[in-house]
Design a protein around this nucleic acid. Structure first.
Lengths: 223, 223, 223, 223
DNA sequence: GATGAATGAGTATTCATTCAT
DNA sequence: GATGAATGAATACTCATTCAT
């Protein structure tokens, strides 16, 4: 359905549309977010959304011309702003600081990412769910995140390897374990909705686990 | 749609139905598997399946009375047989052997699970995709796997902790990192379909990563 | 939709409404005329009209309470005033003059009608388009024009036949060829919008064609 | 909606689809033809069609995937076959014969066209109605007919002018009057549905009218 | 007067499922 | 067993019209 160009257009338009959004339209967006996260995009009907938002069905279509538009509107903030911002923030916070040890580095990024994931777990669930059944969406995500990573994260990892602060594996392997650990956290949140989570404790274990798993060692020149 | 009782019934019936499956019905199952994995269950129509299997639409309904039946038939082998079998096999292979170090233990289970995931990646993608939008399916999965884990895996982990072969964290934390690392592998397979994967190299890195991350250390009595 | 009684009422009200029309309402009428002629009444939305007139959608409904009202307002001038007026004018100009030959007669009416058609081609297109899909409109038109014709035009034709100025066919046949020739001109205008038309040359050919085709001859007593 | 390429594709597909059309699908086509002619395409709902054809609404969509498809299916026979065939037939019958006078020539073509128009008046009404509100349809028609005319009819008219059988006006003027007279006949049929028509009498008058109007005369070299 | 958000009845279209042949 | 035509409930979307500000 949504091709990359269209999708990017949509994101641009959405930002514009979402300024000065009337209260009912805001309710529609909120209802969509909840329902998409709960039942999935495909199984959510526009009638469901109208009911949940307590508006007439036609009202759903006033600002958002199609159901896809609504999906885009729900995902836009995270895909347009938060992802790139998150990555640059990642860079700024985590990498510009001169870390003298792996622990401080991991503490910085894990703490930050954990909170980001926790707060955006609903949208992230929708994104992930869509990516599984929509290869266009998957490609967009992969390219968008992939580009940011190879431009920003990879160089930083290599810099840390030169300082012997992190294990000398190929950067993509390190990234996989780093990102995978955080992705695993998201998966837990999705699998156990409503479950009480102690973010500090969670990140504590993650940091220690990664710290050991990714520690530099004497003969780590695997590349 | 599918409630747990129904689903279990379905699985029982499926096993029966799938004995002596005529060639056309086999083609229908194969087509369903491919299409569900590719486009998702919801976006696959029975007409799509009929076309892909090169049969008439009515033929799709000969053995499998509903579309949900087809989903069940596709998922049955892995949910009915492979999961439990896998876990017991996990137990048998990995735990009954007396490992004297973490490396051998991780090597055994990671190698086994990696191959299992790789070979069943299509079905696992469908399962995961369904679980994201179908809370009943999620509950079933969680309970089914959860039970097996708490009965089998947790005791084993604790046993190894007593032998000081693995870090003294709560068993669920250890499981999270263990399973998460493998789940991350599945995610990579899904994200990069068609990408050439060197299973040996992949498991090699995983084992080493986990080995360090989960190694027992002197003062690891966190519980 | 519009019944004859209603339509006539509407036309009456319209005349009233259209006195002292504020500029925005005039823009709305103009936009309606253009859009109805371009895309047809059914395919023109009130939003289209609002956009084209650069007003809010609600403003469209200020004077004209329904979309049908707008159609009536667009058609009123021609249906209420111009048609009857045209016919009496026809009578006055073309028939009260004592023509001594067919050529002068045809020159008078063809010239007049050609200009009328040319200037009102947009409204005539809408009328014709509506008549094709709205039998009530068709009936109204047919009766209104039909009556005027049988009362005014037929007697005049018969008078000319007595003077042996025109062929002795049944009056309705003569009218058909006369009107048909002009209708053919309207059709050309519709089919080739934007095409440069030399009205003088066009009427020249029509007059000559009709002059020969309808000339009185010795033994023309066909009636 | 329908672009030229698409429309031509549609016509091709329609011919194929209409071989071995099940009885219900035939009823659907017939009902569509009647309703489109009666109320217009836009005002005919698929529910109307289903009711008139005494089938379920879904059945309407079995062969014809959209309402536009149905329109194309209704128009295909005349646009794909009848028009071109009619024109070549026109050529064959009317022009290959060596006419020694205008009367025989007009008799041949008027008689033929009158019957064609009479028998296809419903479809022609739909075509004409669509052309008024759909500029793409208009362009297709204009080009399709226009091409046939300029390739076949114009040369024949010029041949007859050389033989001094027809007036020496520009070919397009002659065509206008010839076609216009027949178009006028169609218009009468549309305006007066159900009215008893004596085709022989009608064509008789047309022929005589055209015969005089288009007769060659001594000094007719207007071109 | 003007605005534009909101409404809800109406409409084209989809698709799992049934069933006569 | 297999076919594919038929079904009808469900669903996304449209648009004339209303009304509070």
């Amino acid at each position: 359905m949504i091709k990359e160009a269209d999708l990017n257009d949509l994101f641009g338009q959405m930002i514009h549309k979402m300024a000065d959004l009337p209260p009912k339209q805001q309710r529609i967006l909120a209802a969509s977010l909840n329902l998409f996260a709960e039942k999935g995009f495909d199984k959510t009907t526009t009638e469901d959304i109208a009911n949940a938002a307590q508006v007439a069905q036609g009202t759903v279509y006033r600002r958002f011309k199609t159901k896809d538009d609504l999906l885009a509107a729900v995902l836009t903030p995270i895909l347009k702003d938060v992802f790139p911002q998150a990555i640059s923030q990642f860079t700024g916070q985590a990498f510009e600081t001169k870390y003298t040890n792996l622990h401080d580095f991991l503490t910085a990024i894990v703490t930050d990412r954990i909170h980001f994931i926790y707060e955006n777990r609903q949208v992230l669930k929708i994104v992930w769910s869509q990516a599984l059944t929509n290869s266009e969406m998957l490609v967009i995500l992969r390219d968008r995140i992939g580009q940011a990573i190879s431009e920003i994260v990879f160089p930083q990892i290599k810099k840390m390897q030169k300082q012997n602060l992190i294990i000398g594996w190929p950067a993509d392997k390190i990234l996989t374990f780093l990102a995978g650990t955080m992705f695993t956290f998201l998966t837990k949140l999705i699998i156990m909705p409503g479950h009480q989570i102690d973010l500090d404790s969670e990140s504590d274990f993650m940091i220690r686990f990664l710290e050991e798993g990714l520690a530099a060692n004497g003969d780590n020149h695997l590349v």
